[in-house]
Every structure is written in C-alpha cells, then in structure tokens.
Amino acid sequence: MTAFLEAVSIWSIPLLVALVSLYAIFKKVPVYSVFTEGAKDGFNTAVMIIPYLTAMLCAIGMFRASGAMGYLTDLLAPVTNLIGLPAEVLPMGIMRSFSGGAAEGLMADLLATYGIQSQIGRIASVALGSTETTFYVVAVYFGSVGVSKTRHCIAAGLLGDLASLIASAIIVNLMWF
C-alpha cells in the first residue's frame, strides 16, 4: 500500500505537467509564453510570505529555545498520543483554522527543526495541505454578500479541520511509521 501511495505522489506532478501541456498545445495555447507569464506571480507569492514567516518563525524560535515549547508539548502529549499525533504538531493544527500565514510559519519551524521526512514533518505537511483557513474563508465569502448569520458553517468547517488533522496522523503513521 505504501509503495502504491508513494508511486502516486511521485507520478502525479510529472504526469500533470505532461498532460496539461499536451492538452494546452492541442488547444492552440502558446504554452511556453503562457507558462513564463504565469511564473512571474510565483515570485510575488514567495516574497509576500516573508514578513509572516519572519514574524512567526522568530516568535516560535524564541518560544522553543526558552523551554516553554517542551513544557507545552509534554502537557499536550497524553491527549494527542491517543490518536498517534505528536504533540509538537498540535499548535500548528489549531492555528490552521485561524491564520494560514501563521500556520505556514509554524510548519516551516517544524520542518526546519525535525526534518521534512520525520514523523512530525510529514504529519504537519499533510495536515497543512489538506484543509483551508476556516475563519478566513467564511469571513471573506460571507462578508462579500453581507451575510452575517452563518448558522452551522463554522462548526462544520472546524470539524472538517479536526478530521483532517486526525486523518493526517493516521495515514502518515500507517504509511511510514
């Protein structure tokens, strides 16, 4: 099973690139110039994230060096261990629902501290990639049409985020650990 899933991960981007370009050239799209024109946006996206990454990484770096992070994870571990989730990932998992930039900062810290192929690094990556910033999405889209009574939206979104965190831990543990 792990071998199959790893093959999916390895093949999906190369296949997507090949199929999309083939389809586009078939549709008479000037692929090369359209690609380079779009690639310009990548620079902006990466540069835009610097202030958020710096703010979050420095704060979390201080928090980690002071020993407070170790204390916090020791406190959380008995609960998170029940589902095989390392306590180190939980702060990022909670932040994911509130601020995308801050969650990316927390994940960057986990990746830099523990490595991208560690259990912590993998679970954090899967959790970050598999859900959206619930509060931000709801505020933006409902704000745009003036809807203020959002009924069950936040509850459903947060339960979805929780499901993604638990699923991430279970899948990564089944696949690699």
Binding site: V17, V29, E37, G38, G42, F43
Partner: peptide
C-alpha cells in the same frame, strides 16, 4: 514560479 506557470497554462 513553476506551479504558477503551470496553473496559468
């Protein structure tokens, strides 16, 4: 940049 390019295509 690579993914933004691909997405534009």
């Amino acid at each position: 940049a690579f993914f933004c390019g691909l997405m534009n295509v």
